[in-house]
Design a protein around this nucleic acid. Structure first.
Length: 490
RNA sequence: CGGGAUGUAGCGUAGCCCGGUAUCGCGCCACAUUUGGGAUGUGGAGGCCGCAGGUUCGAAUCCUGCCAUCCCGACCA
């Protein structure tokens, strides 16, 4: 492992790339736009999955699995959905390879599929085709299903975790008898995401709704959580869509209501992806490496022994054994790094790079004094503490780190959210102090589009529970009733 | 798909103008000394110079074609 990474002030995007690779989260794959998620990175995803999965189950959802491949014809059924995804779909056209005259492996042109198959960019179409068979009566509703899956979108420009061609996610797909119930579901799942982001990722988010321009293809309304990264760019961290009856109509999914009349089913879909790992990295980390919130860190505590002779190591090890048991009893994950092939200083740097929240260093001097050196990753401070009650000390410290990381991110967002009333100031701040800009907008897609073309900033969302106030659109001066959040975004 | 750049050991690179089978650092292996913030010494292994043609006695180097990656634009969780 080479020494250090580039400073995030010097080159933020290179800092991010180096961090992902050097912290052992992921690496590039032979296929452009795809990534190999390494064990350290994947175990963060597993933690996210297990927390979210429980939240989904607690709100009444069940998991299921739908196929990777979708008949091409399904895509032509919902007009705006097709339009949204058609440009980035990978297509399977053949089902066999063969050796040609030169012994090269080639596609067997004899083996052409009658109907081409699309690798799912999202599963609405195959799911609604399936739901048609599941739903006849209001008694069959609601259907509350989630699936954990991979999807593929042929992106032109990709970045590790933030935008890769293939990515891992979960997609919830629900069916309801009424619009009200579907809207309530959409809002409920947005709250689940916000709760998860704030309490687990330690990532403060703004809950809001997307404008028509930014809405999911095929949705009537898209809700989102938006987060601010340390370079002042916004990142959409999760979305929840009210799909209305669009897919029910496209796939002819009707049910008999209590009055015996046929009606189309109301739908929602909602998802978060491995992009959350990118959010985690960009929100908290620093020039020394990752900073992980304790609740999602694969290793919460690392213990590094410092010794000269084997007897010393044995002495330390026997103490570490009881400490480890105490910590495990509290459900705290611990790693005792007793490798003799690396020196302590090297290990310190390595675990800082990998974002381990708490480090315990124990040497012979500590053993004599009944102390350890306790270092925290978020502040990079260290202190000498008593061995007595250490598990409790660490437990409390982990909680403090979790909340400190959140506060730091929260304060950053507050400091970088600015109310703006003129277009000149809007443009100036985008360059001088990037972040969320809260400004009046006349509500038209044309204005939003023009601002985007001129400044590269988009409307990230119309915050929920937004204060209503009289104002004038920063671009056109037309009347407006509320501020919306603008930013340059990932 | 347009504009720019780059492909040499696991990683980062020198050499290319001016042709003679490849430089340095990190990492790796062995041994010794080390161990409270990225150790040091000695010895060693590792290469189809992106791929395919061409020019030449001889190509990492010159020529042609292809492929890949990165950066900048249009698309996006």
């Amino acid at each position: 492992m080479s020494k250090g990474i580039i400073s995030k002030d010097e080159d933020y995007s290179q800092w991010f790339n180096e961090l992902v690779i050097k912290a052992d989260m992921a690496e590039y794959s032979p296929v452009r736009g795809c990534m190999i998620i390494k064990p350290y990175g994947y175990s963060i995803w597993e933690k996210m999955q297990s927390v979210l999965d429980k939240m989904f189950k607690d709100t009444g959802h069940s998991n299921a699995y739908f196929p990777l491949l979708i008949p091409k014809s399904f895509f032509s059924k919902e007009a705006s959905h097709v339009e949204g995804f058609a440009k980035e779909c990978a297509v399977v056209t053949h089902y066999r390879l063969k050796n040609d005259e030169d012994g090269q492996i080639v596609v067997d042109s004899e083996a052409k599929l009658e109907e081409e198959l699309i690798i799912r960019p999202t599963s609405e179409t195959i799911i609604w085709n399936t739901y048609k068979g599941w739903i006849q009566s209001y008694r069959d509703l609601p259907i509350l299903v989630n699936q954990w899956a991979n999807v593929m979108r042929w992106e032109m420009r990709t970045r590790m975790f933030l935008r890769t061609s293939e990515f891992l996610w979960q997609e919830g797909h629900t069916a309801h008898a009424t619009a009200e119930e579907a809207v309530a579901e959409t809002e409920q799942m947005l709250d689940v995401y916000a709760d998860f982001a704030e309490n687990w990722l330690a990532l403060p988010v703004v809950r809001g709704r997307k404008t028509a321009n930014e809405r999911f293809a095929g949705a009537l309304d898209t809700y989102c959580i938006e987060a601010l990264m340390q370079d002042g760019k916004a990142l959409q961290a999760g979305t929840s869509h009210f799909l209305g009856q669009n897919f029910a109509k496209a796939f002819d999914v009707k049910f008999a209501n209590k009055e015996g009349k046929l009606d189309y089913v109301w739908a929602t879909s909602w998802g978060v992806s491995t992009r959350l790992i990118g959010a985690l990295i960009m929100a908290h980390s620093d020039d020394a490496g990752l900073v992980l919130p304790p609740k999602l860190a694969p290793i919460q505590v690392v213990i590094v022994p410092i010794y000269k002779h084997d007897e010393e190591l044995e002495n330390i090890s026997s103490y570490v054994k009881t400490l480890t048991n105490d910590l495990k009893a509290k459900d705290i994950s611990v790693k005792f790094d007793n490798r003799d092939t690396q020196r302590p200083g090297f290990k310190f740097a390595e675990y800082e790079l990998k974002g381990v929240p708490v480090r315990v260093a124990i040497g012979s001097r500590d053993m004599q004094n009944g102390t350890v050196e306790l270092a925290r990753r978020d502040t990079k401070t260290k202190e000498t503490v008593q061995q007595e009650g250490l598990a409790n000390t660490i437990e409390a410290l982990l909680e403090e780190i979790q909340s400190n990381i959140y506060s730091k991110a929260y304060n950053f967002r507050e400091e970088n959210t600015t109310e703006v009333d003129t277009y000149e100031e809007f443009k100036r701040l985008l360059d001088e102090k990037p972040g969320f800009l809260s400004a009046h907008w006349d509500g038209t897609p044309e204005t939003e589009q023009r601002i985007k073309e001129e400044t590269k900033a988009t409307i990230r969302c119309i915050p929920l529970n937004n204060a209503q106030e009289e104002g004038k659109c920063i671009l056109t001066g037309k009347p407006s009733t509320q501020r919306v959040l603008f930013a340059r975004a990932y």
